[in-house]
Design a protein around this nucleic acid. Sequence first.
DNA 1: TGACAAAGCCCCTGTC
DNA 2: GACAGGGGCTTTGTCA
Lengths: 91, 91, 91, 91
Amino acid sequence: MEVMNMGGVSADQLRLIIDKIERLEEEKVQLGEHIKDVYSEAKAEGFDVKTIRTVVRMRKMKPEEMNEQEEMLEIYLSALGMRRSEQQEAS
Amino acid sequence: MEVMNMGGVSADQLRLIIDKIERLEEEKVQLGEHIKDVYSEAKAEGFDVKTIRTVVRMRKMKPEEMNEQEEMLEIYLSALGMRRSEQQEAS
Amino acid sequence: MEVMNMGGVSADQLRLIIDKIERLEEEKVQLGEHIKDVYSEAKAEGFDVKTIRTVVRMRKMKPEEMNEQEEMLEIYLSALGMRRSEQQEAS
Amino acid sequence: MEVMNMGGVSADQLRLIIDKIERLEEEKVQLGEHIKDVYSEAKAEGFDVKTIRTVVRMRKMKPEEMNEQEEMLEIYLSALGMRRSEQQEAS
DNA sequence: TGACAAAGCCCCTGTC
DNA sequence: GACAGGGGCTTTGTCA
């Protein structure tokens, strides 16, 4: 009964899957802690953590902004008087 | 140029659409905040917010779905020797 | 037993809370469907839904971008050669 | 100007920090995709992904926490007349 | 089915 | 030192 096959489900296979996931998630947690350490050190050296996070986020986002359906967007923004080059005059 | 028709797009109509969406989304945000308030009050009165969320989620599910979920979970836990009824003897 | 007080929890009060949450969530769903309708109509009239979504998102984000720790961010971006005005030449 | 020191901030050091974070986050993403693959394979072999997620989550919880959650839930469901054991008679 | 948006959960910071 | 509040990340559901 320890190793069973219930509802067509292989218990052994299930165990393997769950073990693997738990191992990978454990690594992921470690990585997360490592990242946190880097931020902590940065803070200790006088950097502003929040700003670094912002920079990292921006660098991630840039690529998708650049290729994305830019033309259509420009048309719509123009129609709304939100063209980027005019934005600061928008009051 | 303020009211233009570029690429077959009516700027005025576009404005109306976006205004309407923003108005509706604003209402939706308000509602979300209201819901959050209710949870906060509940918490202040000693209720466990997480459990209330679970209950609300369960009530959303059709009873059959809920049973399916439960049954499937039981099967998997059994396969792993984690059946709830046996749990306390597990250690 | 219908109206009970178990573990210091008032069943009646709990019912009220859950009813209220469910009512508010129902309204929220309605609103979401309404918004969806507006997008559908826009599409039927020849607008590009995805672009409208982008515009709406941009209009939401602008305010927070503008006030947010801008100076610090500029400093950091400069240090990395990512100053916004130089960005398009960055390639 | 490439290597500058603005506002007391070392550009080079900042670069190192951000590079390190991005490298670690990249690894974290890879790991996340790997985990997703495992789930996909499990699904392809007939397992129920959602249930596996539930099992993994349960195994992460300390047994006492798990019991607490369960007990609290039982209390709330009882208060609402939704106790599982009575459910099928409920209609 | 694959991407996109919304919701829930958790950590972290500021405050009392 | 604890706790409420906010922000970020992960996960879940939905739409094309």
